[in-house]
């Protein structure tokens, strides 16, 4: 069955019209590929959760567990990489659709032959920044774990709610408008082969920093919520709505974070009645 599907795909792919359409689509709307990458990630996440027998949540091994549980450095690095996978999947699924303007800027700044490579360089730089942010947040979670050790489970269960509350509060902080405006950042790129890739990579890293500065708190909240798929999907829709459809100084997103915080508070309170940490669905794993 799998081989048959693969064979059919190769046949379709080789059709000249299809090949030319794919190429033309990328040339005209380079951001369409970034959306496709995001869509593929979403499909995989939902497939893993509902069809392949996984969970709607993905857990991070705690850094503390990793350090004390690892047999050697290699083991630690493997565990660390595995723990960053859900984070990076989340970045691709949620953040890539927000990059229309930047991907188009990179693609149209370069000769046609360099466009795809330039966009890939940009995305690599962008992802690298987010990877660093993710590692930092893992460390933060480890610190929180240590601080909350021995405390009532309700503290841990309410962490996503607290993080979304913080995200909502930041929406009313005047500096956030400036940061939101910076999301449109553009940089002049060289057009000669490796220099164009270097510039695109550099641009991606800077854009990653600008994005992380604005969006790290809701992303962190989702990390605390074990990348709950439904919440991720909701947050993604809110972010896309804010990015493309409303003025950047709008406070609507703040109300959305407040609602999600209320939802997590409700869950945390519910979990109290069920007793025991195992019954709490959104606590930080230790």
């Amino acid at each position: 069955m799998r081989q048959q599907l693969l064979y059919s795909w190769i046949l379709v792919r080789e059709k000249p019209v299809f090949r030319s359409d794919l190429k033309t689509t990328f040339q005209r709307w380079p951001a369409s590929w970034v959306w496709l990458m995001s869509l593929a990630t979403w499909v995989w996440l939902f497939y893993s959760a509902f069809i392949a027998g996984g969970s709607v949540q993905m857990s991070h091994p705690s850094l503390v567990t990793m350090v004390y549980g690892s047999t050697d450095l290699t083991d630690f690095l493997i565990q660390l990489s595995a723990s960053m996978l859900p984070w990076m999947l989340m970045v691709i699924a949620m953040m890539f659709p927000l990059l229309n303007t930047q991907v188009e800027h990179v693609a149209f700044s370069l000769p046609r032959s360099e466009r795809a490579k330039g966009v890939l360089s940009f995305l690599s730089g962008y992802s690298l920044t987010w990877l660093a942010v993710g590692a930092g947040l893992q460390l933060l979670i480890a610190v929180i774990d240590m601080l909350l050790a021995g405390r009532s489970a309700i503290f841990k269960a309410s962490l996503p709610a607290v993080a979304f509350l913080l995200a909502a509060a930041v929406v009313w902080w005047p500096q956030r408008i400036v940061w939101m405006a910076a999301c449109g950042l553009r940089m002049p790129l060289r057009i000669n082969t490796w220099k164009s890739h270097l510039d695109s990579f550099n641009y991606g890293m800077k854009k990653g920093f600008v994005c992380a500065r604005t969006c790290w708190i809701p992303m962190f909240a989702l990390m605390l919520a074990h990348h709950n798929l439904w919440t991720m999907a909701l947050v993604t829709l809110v972010l896309i709505y804010e990015r493309y459809l409303i003025p950047h100084e709008s406070k609507l997103i703040g109300y959305a974070w407040l609602l999600i915080a209320a939802f997590f508070t409700g869950l945390a309170l519910l979990s109290l009645g069920q007793g025991g940490e195992q019954a709490i669905p959104y606590c930080v794993p230790v």
Binding site: T24, Q27, R28, P111, L189, I191
Partner: peptide, 14 residues
Amino acid sequence: AEAAMPLEVVAADN
């Protein structure tokens, strides 16, 4: 205008 094939950069001074 975007529906047409975008123009290509031929030269640039950075």
